[in-house]
Amino acid sequence: MKSILASAAVLALSASAALAQDVIRMGTEGAYPPYNFINDAGELDGFEIELGNELCERAELNCEWVSNEWDSIIPNLVSSNYDTIMAGMSITDERDEVIDFTQDYYPPTESAYVALSEDADFEAGVVAAQAATIQAGHVAESEAALLEYANPEETVAAVRNGEADAVFADYDFLKPIVDASGGELMFVGDPVPLGGGIGMGLRESDDELQTTFDEAITSMKEDGTLNEMLVKWFGDEIGQY
């Protein structure tokens, strides 16, 4: 009897401990506009920051943002340095083996090549991509030589200074850059559909938090606020729910 009571108390204690976690720490990269970036004031800003704050409000969670470089973003999640990842991370099978994802909050979209001229050799030349992304994986499997960089900005810089023939990245990341380049940069070739949309990454053991955020995302999809946010950050062309 005593041991049953004790184990019940332990169960209750651990359940309440999980619920009473008063601050959820949200990891992001802070270098991938418009998804997430650091604004002029030196603060995190972007689609995912606005979305994450809204999700936390709906789930009545107290959230705090943490920036972490892309390379170590998954290792730091699984060692519990923060609790979620919202960093433009596409849902893939390989990642799903290590961490869990919520449903997608950003629909599956296309990745595209950008180069300095129309006749750039993006099929068999040197193509830049950010390390450990689905785009890097795609280039590695293609005929082209892959040139990896630690952050997204450097992949575009590589094309500008001639180290790479083209850069391969998310269309929505490249579009503002191409628009602002005044004709210097252009899209080449056909867009490639990649990945299963972008979702929030969580530890596999954190089922409760996953359910909470899944519900919050569903509610935002249902009342149309997620679509408004997508259009605000990515323009009218963006796929909606």
Binding site: N39, G46, V156, A157, R160, P176, I177, A180
Partner: peptide, 10 residues
């Protein structure tokens, strides 16, 4: 890094 006008005033 290159900054595009959409995300910065500078």
């Amino acid at each position: 890094g290159t900054k595009t006008p959409q995300f910065t005033d500078y």
